[in-house]
């Protein structure tokens, strides 16, 4: 998300008097906490920058390497936080990180029915649909219907495993590697790995987008 100003900094983007009740209280609490020395403007800016630096590209790299290097995949699935650290992806704020691998016969889909748990230190902020009430309600009892809405009609003999992130575990799906991609480079493969494929509601793209 592009925002060129500091979070909460005065700027030209929209009249402040039209802000909602709670938006105004966000600025008010920020100012009070800064005045009291509980947090600094700098803390807030750095945190926002840290969050902005987390994007699905992190996950795409991990998935593409897992597709091309079985030894990497084995290590990644066994100790994902350690492998992230080696790759320069700071996942230290993540409690626990669990990798789920899709196959021809078994596929995984991740939800948090109680709130919006998501592997933010790897993928960044969750998409709006992931936080939506309709997804939280339907993912557990209608996963196939949800996937159909995302364009995926699964055969009956494929087993769907829904993971409800109710505790300290954060889940990431390795989607199946699309057929006919044997000659693609790791960099090209990364472009096939979408955010939604790592949540498990879609497949990886069949070919590199134009």
């Amino acid at each position: 998300m592009a925002h060129e100003h500091e979070p909460g900094e005065e700027h030209e983007a929209g009249p402040r008097h039209e802000l909602s009740h709670w938006a105004k209280r966000a600025y008010a609490m920020r100012d009070i906490l800064v005045e009291k020395g509980v947090v600094t403007e700098n803390d807030i800016r750095q945190q926002a920058e840290f969050t902005e630096s987390k994007t699905p590209a992190n996950g795409a790299r991990l998935v593409a390497l897992s597709w091309t290097d079985p030894e990497f995949k084995a290590r990644f699935m066994a100790d994902p936080k350690k492998v992230c650290a080696e790759m320069g992806i700071d996942a230290s704020t993540l409690n626990e990180f669990v990798i789920l691998e899709n196959t021809d016969k078994v596929r995984h889909m991740v939800v948090c029915t109680l709130c919006s748990c998501y592997p933010r230190p790897i993928l960044g902020r969750p998409p709006d649909w992931y936080k939506s009430f309709n997804y939280r309600k339907r993912a557990v009892n209608d996963p196939r219907g949800v996937m159909r809405e995302f364009g995926l009609d699964l055969p009956d003999d494929v087993e769907v495993r829904v993971h409800d992130s109710t505790a300290d575990m954060r889940y990431l799906v390795i989607p199946a590697r699309p057929a006919g991609t044997e000659n693609l480079s790791v960099e090209e493969l990364e472009k096939l790995v979408t955010r939604d494929s790592m949540i498990g509601v879609m497949d990886a793209l069949p070919s590199v987008p134009e």
Binding site: G8, A26, I44, R45
Partner: peptide, 9 residues
């Protein structure tokens, strides 16, 4: 902007 702030805070 206020949502970025809410998230970061």
């Amino acid at each position: 902007d206020w949502e970025v702030l809410a998230d970061a805070l």
